[in-house]
Each structure stands twice: as C-alpha cells, then as structure tokens.
C-alpha cells in the first residue's frame, strides 16, 4: 500500500539492477535456445549439399559407365604397396562428367601420378569433391600425404573416397586398394577396386554387381579431425588416399584417425585398417553414394557386418539398412 501511494511522488528514470539482470538472463536463455537451432539448420544444409556432391559423383560414375562401358578404376597401382607408382584413379577419371574436362585434359595418362607432368592436376581444388562440413585437420590447403611415392609432393585434400571393397577383422588382412587385396576372397571386391590388369583386376561393369546396384556402395566420406597427412587426397591414386575399404569394426567408421589407430593397437593390429577408414563430421553418421546413383545417410551405429556386405558387389548377402 505504501508503495502505491509513493509512486506518483517519486519519478523513476532508471531500471533497477535486478530488472536489468532478469532481462539479461532472459535474453541469454533465448540465445541459448536459438544458437543450437541455427547451427543445426546450418549443419543440415551442409549435409544436404554434401549429399548433393555425392549424387553428382554417383551420376558421373554412371556416365563414365555409359560412355566407357565400365565404372572408373578405384586406382591403378600395379604392385602391392610402398614404392609402386600409380596411374589414374576414379576421381580423375570422372572429371569430364562433372564438367571439369579442362582439368582432366591436363592429366598425363602416360606419366605416373607422381610425375612432374601431373603436378597441376594434383594441386587443383574441386568443389564437388569437398564436403562443406569437412573440418579435417589442416584445412583445405596443399598437403603432403603420409606415405607412398607421392609423400614428398603436394596434393589437394578432399572428402570422398571410393569403396574398394571389404576387409577382414583379422588375418588375412588385405585391401582392395592395392595388390594386398589378392589375399582376400574375390567376393570381397567392391565396385571401384584397384586395377592391375596383369593380376586380372580390371574395372567393373554394372553386370558384375550381382548383389544389385541399390545394395552396393560406390563412394563414401573420409575426413579426420587429426593427422592431416592421412586425410583424403582426391588426385593421389596410390592405395588408400582416395579409396577405402569397410573393415567390419566400428572404430574404422570414425572421423578420428588417431583414435582409430589407438583402438587398433589395443587389439594388437597396426594402423592399416584406419588408413582405409570412413567417417565424416555430420552428426551421427555419413553420406554414401550407392551404385544405382542414389545417396544414403548411414548412421555410425550401423551393424558393421552389414556395412561390409554393402561394400561388396557379389557376396550374395541380404542387406537391408534403413
């Protein structure tokens, strides 16, 4: 009562501290609510653009099949590993089909990938090959890969890798991105494995995908928050830099090379399964291009056996990931 009678007498020309604090608190809560929502929308948009990139890549592989009769080779490394120089790979071969013919024409098919003649192509940024969510270590600057004959050369990083097939969890270990895959059953081959004509490894046709094109993965994402020299380099045709295999254990479906390496070591294995990993910065999983031209989002909690089976062309497995 006393307050009301006093009011007309005392003129108030300022907020009290409490009022100010309450207003600030309310604004803080509202911002707190809003910011994650905005970030989620932005991430959703990035994820969609990433899926669109994969869609274009998938269609480019289809176009390659239409005009040349086969899917592009995952990579051409005619040897087991290490010192063997490479020729072309899938990401270079589909350049004409994503309207990058001018860059494709600069690639010298008669020289090795690591030759001076191919420096221009090695260093080109290709927008379609970079996922907007990719926050890999090092950023999108020229980087020297960790291993192989190109380890002293600069390559442009990217986000997507061909699916060369599947691997075992243990011995025999081998991967379809180089001759070591020959240690594995032929049914482990993926749609874009290494090509080595002398060993009978030739590019694949649609008709060889007996599991069905909608059940076979073509291209996936690999990005890592550390170890910049083990990320994806689209034009580095040597073994595992533009091509991965599904290793049927969850630690190889993480965007974290160092953590994968640590987990492999705790199982008594070296880091080679991690060099062929998949993973992205999208929350909860990754986008994949499928051989039928579609794009799917597959969560990180997927049954890795099922994902492995989806990586092969002809295992005869029943796969139904939704």
């Amino acid at each position: 009562m006393r307050y009301r009678t006093l009011m007309p007498l005392r003129h108030r020309d300022a907020f009290t501290l409490i009022e100010l604090l309450v207003v600030i608190a309310i604004i803080a809560v509202l911002i707190g609510l809003l910011v994650p929502a905005v970030q989620k929308v932005r991430e959703a948009a990035n994820r969609m653009q990433c899926a669109n990139n994969l869609k274009q890549i998938g269609l480019a592989c289809q176009s390659h099949h239409d005009s040349k009769g086969t899917f592009p080779p995952g990579g051409i490394t005619e040897g087991y590993c290490c010192a063997t120089q490479s020729k072309t790979n899938w990401a270079i071969e589909i350049l004409p089909f994503i309207e990058m013919d001018s860059i494709y024409k600069r690639y010298d098919q008669n020289s090795f990938n690591e030759a001076a003649a191919n420096q221009f192509v090695r260093e080109q940024p290709i927008k379609t090959y970079n996922c907007p969510s990719d926050a890999s270590a090092g950023g999108n600057v020229l980087t020297k890969p960790n291993s192989g004959p190109g380890s002293g050369l600069n390559y442009m990083p990217s986000s997507y890798r061909a699916v060369s097939g599947r691997a075992n969890i243990t011995a025999p270990l081998g991967w379809w991105d180089n001759g070591e895959g020959l240690a594995l059953p032929a049914t482990y081959k993926g749609a874009m494995h290494t090509v080595w004509a002398a060993q009978g490894l030739t590019p694949e046709r649609m008709s060889n995908i007996t599991d069905g094109t909608s059940n076979t993965l073509l291209v996936g994402e690999y990005q890592t928050k550390n170890t910049a020299d083990r990320r994806t380099f689209w034009a580095y045709a040597y073994t595992s830099y533009a091509s991965s295999s599904v290793h049927p254990a969850s630690h190889t479906y993480l965007n974290d090379f160092a953590r994968c390496e640590a987990i492999s070591a705790q199982q008594g294995l070296d880091n080679r399964p991690c060099r062929r990993a998949f993973g992205s910065f999208h929350s909860g999983g990754s986008n994949w291009a499928v051989c039928d031209g579609s794009v799917r989002f597959i969560p990180e909690t997927v049954d890795m056996n099922m994902l492995s089976n989806m990586a092969t062309m002809s295992g005869g497995e029943v796969v139904n990931i939704n």
Binding site: L173, G179, Q267
Partner: peptide
C-alpha cells in the same frame, strides 16, 4: 581372433616388408 604374426601381410613392422612387389606372405588365423 589372434592378431596376425609379425612379418606377415597382416602385421608388418613396416611397409618395407613387401616393397618392390615381393610376393605377399599369407597369414591365416
């Protein structure tokens, strides 16, 4: 499984184990 023995394709001390296109040593579990 038992991890593959050292010196086989499954477990190399270094990539040099099969450098130069040497035939690969098959490890079985």
């Amino acid at each position: 499984a038992l991890p593959p023995a050292k010196g086989t394709i499954g477990q190399q001390d270094s990539d040099a184990a099969n450098a130069g296109g040497k035939p690969i040593t098959q490890a079985t579990n």
